[in-house]
């Protein structure tokens, strides 16, 4: 994957490093694209360069988020919007699955509690 833009070249190099790290140690990594001094056209060029993978996840939590796998497996384009539709975070996440996606242990515990409560209710009747 190549770009003539030295800025994008540097970003690709950082992605390469994060992917190698993910493979070696399983440690995920992120690049905060909103905080980089990128022209709107550069952001578009990067998005086009990374392309579209097989998975698109939408998340509804205090506003919509869109999590897209890029052509590079393990590299995700993550955009969080607030309820007004404003973009509040744009990240490149290098991970098997982005951190925000899997259910967390306390929430799974809460689900178990809900179902156990229902079972107990049924047993009583």
């Amino acid at each position: 994957m190549q770009s003539d833009d030295p800025f994008l070249q540097a970003l690709l190099a950082e992605l390469r490093m994060l992917l190698a790290q993910l493979l070696e140690s399983g440690e995920s990594g992120q690049i905060d694209l909103l905080r980089l001094p990128m022209a709107p056209a550069q952001t578009e060029a990067l998005r086009a360069l990374l392309g579209q993978g097989e998975i698109v996840i939408t998340l509804e939590a205090e506003g919509p988020s869109r999590i897209e796998e890029t052509r590079l497996s393990g590299v995700w384009w993550v955009e969080h919007h607030d309820r007004a539709g404003h973009l509040v975070a744009r990240l490149l996440e290098v991970a098997a699955v982005p951190e925000i996606v899997p259910a967390a242990a306390p929430d799974i515990g809460a689900s178990l509690g809900v179902l156990s409560g229902e079972d107990a209710g049924k047993a009583e009747t």
């Binding site: 998340l59 939590a61 988020s65 969080h80 607030d82």
Partner: peptide
């Protein structure tokens, strides 16, 4: 939700 808080924290 936890995910909403995570989103806020990411922002």
């Amino acid at each position: 939700s936890r995910r909403a808080l995570l989103k806020f924290a990411a922002a």
